[in-house]
Design a binder for these strands. Structure first.
Lengths: 228, 228
DNA sequence: GCAAATAATTGATTAAAATCAATTATCTTT
DNA sequence: AAAGATAATTGATTTTAATCAATTATTTGC
């Protein structure tokens, strides 16, 4: 499993819209809604009616699963990612997960039935959606494995590498989420999250300066991710 | 999250093949391989070349993710389920997970590129595959949540309810997998698995007679699953 | 059917991380 | 800028389940 640090990102660079015809794009455009969310706002709630497929144009969001007590961040969705794709599943018109904006975000909402119709009529488009779903599954599986079998250091290394490689695409980035959010990503308590971060800092694997986090020793993090 | 006991099954009753034309079915049939696996044998290995999509005709299997040290059972695949669908994902010709036969099993193997071709040419078929992928994702997400946020009793309740409701479809079934396999399903050690099972037995939620397991108090298990 | 091997069980100990409790830092609002 | 609120940090304690070690059942191969 080298190089497989269980990224929680949904990197849908694959642009499915390219497969649509002029007409189909127009249909989508005519029926789309554009909505702005502020940092911290809910984009959708688990259990609510899923009337639309949500496409994140700008910003950053998390998709999470919750019950009364606990919350688990399933994935981080960057610009270009979809939210609510699992509700495409027939006879399933409710959101299976919640989503929240990590940053101020802009989304486009496409009518669910229209989206389904496009899938049923345009195989190339459907094929792209399949790609997205598959890639997404692979990432969640690896993340699942990470949280299940690695302990605090490995989990933290995985998440930091993911954020760096997949989300921000630079070794130095503004970690503008709270420690609690980071804890939800690692599946640790916020206290344990803080202690683990501190340990990485003391070992000079990372630097933290205010909200800015810099990975200074990626190889060590990779080692920790792969156990060591 | 009522009624959502994080089932690990892939219940693809949705039969995607119905959407294929005579010609397409013939194409698939002409290029299929049929292979038999004995209990315990590997059906596919993570990292190996994924030349075929695997369809489980008979038997029962698990899909799991592994590294050198640990293994995590992602899902139980009953008759009618697919293995290796995530490898449909373009430019990804390796199996992302391993699969092993829980029981003697028969599979059909469909050429990956042919399968991709059918998806690209038959939108209704593609749509069914999307359904399967979505349903599968929802189940794995719930399972992920269960293992992440529930403790031993809740996890065990989830798995027993899943096996009963989704896989065997009866409250009394032959649990012909080892305690270690059950441990992999619950994400617990085999010792803890045994202790948890024993506790359920002592509380008269289940009866164990040799390899036969009978759920005698489903409501209590549901309560435990939903925390209590 | 018996021996060896494998699996299941039980108890004792340890370890990892959660929780609890208190303090300090940072952000918000006016 | 001050006050209050929220978030971050640190230390102490507890909890859960893993690990370790030993024993008992059950299979399997001959």
């Amino acid at each position: 499993m080298e190089n497989n640090h269980s990224c929680s990102a949904a990197t849908d660079n694959l642009c499915c819209f390219e497969e649509l015809t002029e007409n189909e794009i127009q249909l989508l455009e005519q029926n789309k809604l554009e909505v702005t969310y502020k940092k911290g706002e809910n984009i959708c709630k688990q259990g609510a009616f899923a009337s639309h497929i949500i496409y994140l144009c700008q910003g950053l969001a998390k998709v999470y699963i919750e019950n009364g007590t606990n919350s688990l961040t399933l994935k981080v969705v960057p610009r270009g990612g979809f939210i609510g794709l699992t509700s495409l599943f027939s006879e399933n018109n409710i959101f299976q997960n919640s989503a929240m904006a990590y940053q101020d975000s802009v989304v486009r909402m496409f009518d669910m039935n229209l989206f389904r119709k496009l899938i049923n009529e345009n195989a190339a488009f459907a094929s792209q959606i399949i790609n997205i779903l598959c890639e997404n599954s692979v990432q969640i599986y690896n993340r699942f494995f990470s949280l299940q079998h690695k302990q605090s250091f490995g989990r933290m290394a995985d998440i930091l590498l993911c954020l760096s490689d997949r989300i921000f695409k630079t070794s130095e980035f503004d970690l503008n989420i709270s420690r609690q959010e980071l804890a939800d990503l690692t599946g640790l308590s916020k206290e344990q999250t803080i202690r683990t971060l501190k340990s990485f800092k003391d070992d000079n694997f990372i630097e933290i300066e205010g909200k800015t986090l810099k990975i200074t020793d990626k190889n060590s993090l990779l080692d920790i991710s792969n156990y060591g």
